[in-house]
Nucleic acid binder design. Structure first.
Lengths: 246, 246
DNA sequence: CGGATGGTTGAGTCACATCAACTAAAGTGG
DNA sequence: CCACTTTAGTTGATGTGACTCAACCATCCG
């Protein structure tokens, strides 16, 4: 029930690719510390497994994701961990109207992030018309993410949930890349996916297998960080998403 | 699976209390039409069962709830209906950064609403410091609502979900009333609660019964619109919320 | 009184969570 | 470069419990 509490799986600090990007990385392990100077709009490279914002921290910055994928997680009062989503390039992280960050954000892959001070954000929203449209777009995207999550969780089986998740992931990556070859990058672990879908990790694995043996998807090999799968039959994947078995 | 689609239960247009408040009510059945003139900050009384905002409509107004309880619902692309929450006095409805309302809002009880034009909202956010704090508070409250919903849906049984829901309802009403007598108003149907918790209506009923027979709650009689229950043992309700059976 | 809506209860089935053991792969350190 | 450890993922067996279908009350409204 609260097995997630027993294994917080906090920052699994990989150091595999890090040697390649050592000079680009600001800090190596654990929580990423943002330099206080030159914080405004300076894009920085961050290693995988870095905690960008901490739950409960003061929300003084918003981060625009230039590239890479992040993971949003939250620890509830009773100790369970919830995965809230996997924002990627083009989205923003840290947007909140409250007095503190409600969730933690952690890089799943190497990422390029642009920090923006909250003050600057308010200035831009009031002033520059174009910048405001940009901000509202990010806020809207976040709204959409949450809505999609709720829609997934109100589905009643692992198969519809996973299928919907994969399709959504495909759509997002397709929009980002401009083309659609049916390949879906999954930089997150299956454990994270399971938590996001509110199913058991074993069930997630079994459902994946079912999709594989039914020739709906094709599982690739490990891709440095995470897996990569390919959609073989989008029709059936879409039908699985709404609960029709054949 | 999609039984909600078969019975959209759209606007169940009650006319019970309406005779009492007939002169206060602007429109009787179906979708509530807001007068175009005097829209700014004029509190209006609305009957129960009125649709305040429609999904897909242009989000030109935000509604501050002075009194009463509303229901937020959404119809997904594949026809399922999702209940997103039950905002009450002190909260705001219709806040969105996108080009259209994502969900419909309907009054569950008689309500007093203050509409505010979006333009006026932007003006206030940029200008008046105090008004901005108010708006940010509403946005934050909405964030909190969604987070709580996600936290509930990531719980894995009907009992924890229902218990959490009841405790949250109690907390909200307690804060609003200033005192806590353990009484919880439930203006929504059990069908709505079940949809909100993503469980079957029968399961919702059975779980309620279990709480009743275990002397955790006491069920009152029908209260005009909806039921009213009382918490007899908050300890056990709280323990049920995190999944401990004893 | 009849219709409609919301709620309750019963029986049965299926499937998800759980526990457990195991493989695969990658990081760690000598 | 090879043992050791750790983590992610896979598979099997099992019991329970939530959904489903169905019929039945209870209220409220005409």
């Amino acid at each position: 029930m609260s097995d997630m509490a027993k294994k917080p799986q906090s920052g699994h600090i990989p150091s595999g690719q890090m040697t390649l990007f050592e000079e680009l990385i600001d800090e190596a392990g654990g929580v990423f510390h943002w330099p206080d100077h030159r914080y405004d709009r300076t894009i920085r490279n961050v290693a995988a497994g870095q905690v960008i914002v901490r739950q409960g921290g003061a929300p003084d910055r918003v981060f625009e994701i230039i590239s890479g994928t992040l993971k949003l997680s939250q620890v509830t009062e009773d100790g369970r961990q919830i995965i809230l989503g996997f924002p990627a390039a083009g989205e923003a992280v840290g947007l909140t109207a409250g007095p503190e960050y409600r969730y933690a954000a952690e890089t799943l892959t190497i990422a390029r992030l642009r920090p923006v001070l909250r003050k600057a954000m308010y200035r831009q929203i009031s002033g520059d018309r174009q910048a405001r449209a940009q901000w509202l777009g990010w806020i809207d995207a976040r709204e959409q993410m949450v809505q999609d999550h709720l829609a997934i969780l109100s589905l009643n089986g692992p198969l519809p949930r996973l299928a919907t998740f994969l399709l959504a992931q495909n759509t997002r990556q397709m929009k980002r890349a401009g083309r659609d070859d049916g390949v879906i990058d999954l930089p997150m672990t299956q454990r994270d996916i399971a938590s996001y879908l509110a199913i058991a990790p074993e069930t997630c694995s079994r459902t994946m297998k079912k999709l594989r043996t039914d020739a709906v998807i094709e599982a690739g090999v490990r891709n440095g960080d995470g897996r990569r799968i390919k959609i073989l039959n989008r029709e059936r994947l879409a039908r699985a998403a709404i609960g029709s078995s054949p």
